[in-house]
Every structure is written in C-alpha cells, then in structure tokens.
C-alpha cells in the first residue's frame, strides 16, 4: 500500500532534502538524516517567498515539512 518514495533523505537539523549518496548536509553540515519524511516544499526564491519566511528558510532548495526520526 505504501507509495514509492522519491530518492531523497531529509537532514534532521534543517530538513533539507538531499540524495541518498550525500553524507553531509550542504546547508548545515549535519551528518544525521531521516528517510521518513512527509510533505515537501521547494523554495525557488527565498527572498520573495512567504513560505520560506514562515519556515525560516534562507536558501533555495527542497525541504521536508514533517520528519520522523
């Protein structure tokens, strides 16, 4: 019943989504990742996006909304 998950894992610290082969988060440098995440926000223009402001995101990229450790 579970749907196929796209090839990303989420950084536990900043929620950035990165490919599975990445070992260090390019955003915050954390090495802890979670494969259980839900919802995704793609920030294209961090300065103008209200979503980015609300979530405190300063850099464009793909971020998870919910994380499970």
């Amino acid at each position: 019943m579970r749907r196929r998950r796209p090839p990303f894992k989420a950084c536990i610290k900043c929620k950035l989504l990165v490919p599975f082969n990445v070992e260090e988060c390019p955003n915050c440098g954390s090495r802890e990742f979670s494969e259980e995440w839900e919802g995704m926000v793609i920030i294209l223009d961090a300065e103008r996006s209200q979503v980015a402001k609300r979530l405190g995101i300063g850099k464009p990229g793909r971020y998870a909304i919910k994380l499970r450790r």
Partner: peptide, 15 residues
C-alpha cells in the same frame, strides 16, 4: 520554472 525563469517563488506538496 528554473528553465523558463518564471516568477514562481515556491512549490509545496502538502501532507
């Protein structure tokens, strides 16, 4: 959006 430089600021897939 990136290829065409469209004025879209974010995309969200919401749980």
């Amino acid at each position: 959006v990136k290829a065409n430089k469209l004025p879209v600021y974010s995309l969200a897939v919401l749980p």
